[in-house]
Design a binder for these strands. Structure first.
Lengths: 131, 131
DNA sequence: GCGTATTTCAACCGAATGGTTGACGAGCCG
DNA sequence: CGGCTCGTCAACCATTCGGTTGAAATACGC
């Protein structure tokens, strides 16, 4: 699990139980025991889930004095939102362009002109480099 | 992998390679071969990745006539965006309320008043029910 | 129709997940 | 101090995941 944080965040939220925990944590901090209550799994399992959320940076444990409560860190959501928005916009932009192309193309081009013959399609920017 | 779509989408994007593929697909449709090019893994592995993206509904394969190109379905992004936004707003709302509480609380409360004695904290709405 | 390129199917492998049970450490209360 | 509750650590188990190789399909050019 040496993945980048974005991967960890997505992975953490890929589990319905974990997603539900996050949902509940938006309402209030909670102890591990409280978090475990609704699910019929062992407390240890929940502890592991919390650990996963923590590794993803979605959650912190102030651990100040008494019962260390689990606390949501909402900022991390922005990581995902940024990624998603970026590519969604790019996709929409592309569809717009594609519409233009289709509009500019009267009607001809018999059967299969899409994607061009070879090596024209993608492969464009060789390094879409994540970040 | 009988998980709900939201889980599948998150899981699909938890892999950097898959995320990169999605990023490239926002630029143009591509064949499996084209998609495979930049990575030094077998084409079969990429085929599997595409399958995962497809199961998540992030991608379709028109498969009409010629080379079946892989096509991005951007609408699915909304699924995630909705989930994220919903809980982010809830979290922000909560912080706002919490600030109010802190503001209303002069200074007293000696050492450890947080989380209340018992069963007061979370457990509130018993069913945060996902969707 | 044949050959070739592209893609998928199938079996297998190592590592990671999500879960279990059992034991141990840390804080409270009486 | 003794006990209780809470949480984590540890070992173990079944399943899934991402990758490999090899073989079969599928679709195109000629």
């Amino acid at each position: 699990m040496a993945a980048d944080q974005l991967s960890r965040v997505f992975a953490a939220l890929a589990d319905p139980t974990r997603r539900d925990m996050v949902a509940r944590l938006t309402l209030a901090d909670a102890t591990v025991g409280e978090l475990a209550e609704p699910y019929d799994v062992s407390v240890q399992a929940v502890s592991k889930h919390v650990r996963v959320l923590e590794d993803a940076g979605l959650v912190t444990r102030p651990a100040t004095a008494g019962r260390p409560p689990v606390h949501l860190e909402a900022e991390v959501f922005d990581l995902m939102t940024k990624w998603i928005e970026r590519y969604r916009q790019q996709a929409e932009e592309r569809y717009r362009r594609l519409d233009d192309v289709l509009a500019a193309m009267p009607d001809d081009e018999p059967g299969a002109p899409p994607a061009g013959p070879t090596g024209t399609t993608a492969t464009a920017s060789t390094s879409p480099q994540e970040h």
